[in-house]
Design a protein around this nucleic acid. Structure first.
Lengths: 150, 150
DNA sequence: GAACTTATCTTGACTCGTTCAAAATAAGCA
DNA sequence: TGCTTATTTTGAACGAGTCAAGATAAGTTC
């Protein structure tokens, strides 16, 4: 549901106007999964050089609110966005370079969602972030080890 | 391991000096679970009025690195700290007021930790954040509903 | 198709949590 | 007690994100 026609429907259903900046922002998010705001601004400006950063921030916030895109913000990193929504998937973050990848819930039935309803909170979502090291950084580390410990 | 004697051991083992600001910061974190930096600064200054905010930031970062405390930073909120470390517990965050509470992993064996080792990442930690509504805000919402929908 | 209304965009200033840098201080050692 | 240098203080700076006012253009009405 991230084609131009799709987004027009979503926006109209929510009584929002369909504008060039908005369509461009959504296309950019769909084309660059896990991109941060700056990357999205650059991508948008390739096609529409005069779009302001504010318009991008506004659009991203709006789309996030409408559930068309999803915001991810691991500790120590700026916000990232992705157009893959609706399924219960999580993310791995590389501690060294910040690279982000999708991870489908390993166990079939999303067990993480069932927390003991502690402290009287009513829980509606479980957000899981896996921390680790990406293949590239693993390789770089191995390389370094060779040099440091000959 | 958050007594003054305990922290002295940890610091000395890491060749770090035991200073008044550091001890004060750790006490503050232990006394105010889930407090943000500003709260910790205030707490520290109750006993040591001349401690700078920079010293608090440095100490928090140091303790986090040494694993004595843990930093939590839910989307849209500033960093919080807690002295409860070592066990695999997670957190609930109230979407409305930002209140934070501990949640022990509901299922016995921490199933969330076993992600499919996707994309070649080597995963070392799974961080789970539950999102929901705290009892106070639930009550406030119910109250509001009564007024809005009589 | 032209005029109108107002949501959206542009522009530019601003906030706030956090970090940087240099000089002053005090912890731990000799 | 004095020395060395890790920490702290002080004060400025950074950057992602937000706010506000006027300009623009999407969608509606005539």
């Amino acid at each position: 549901m991230t084609s131009k026609a799709g987004i027009e429907q979503v926006l109209k259903a929510a009584s929002m106007r369909v504008t060039q900046p908005r369509v461009a922002v959504l296309s950019a998010v769909a084309a660059h999964p896990h991109a941060d705001t700056e990357t999205i601004i650059s991508a948008v400006r390739e096609g529409h050089p005069n779009v302001s950063h504010q318009a991008v921030y506004d659009s991203l916030k709006l789309f996030t609110k409408l559930g068309v895109i999803r915001q991810i913000q691991p500790q120590g990193h700026t916000a990232r966005y992705e157009a893959r929504v609706g399924d219960n998937h999580h993310h791995v973050v590389c501690r060294q370079c910040g690279k982000l990848a999708d991870v489908d819930c390993a166990v079939g039935g999303a067990p993480c969602l069932h927390a003991s309803n502690d402290h009287g909170f009513s829980i509606d979502e479980a957000e899981v972030i896996y921390w680790g090291t990406c293949p590239d950084c693993q390789a770089a580390n191995a390389q370094k080890d060779v040099v440091v410990n000959p």
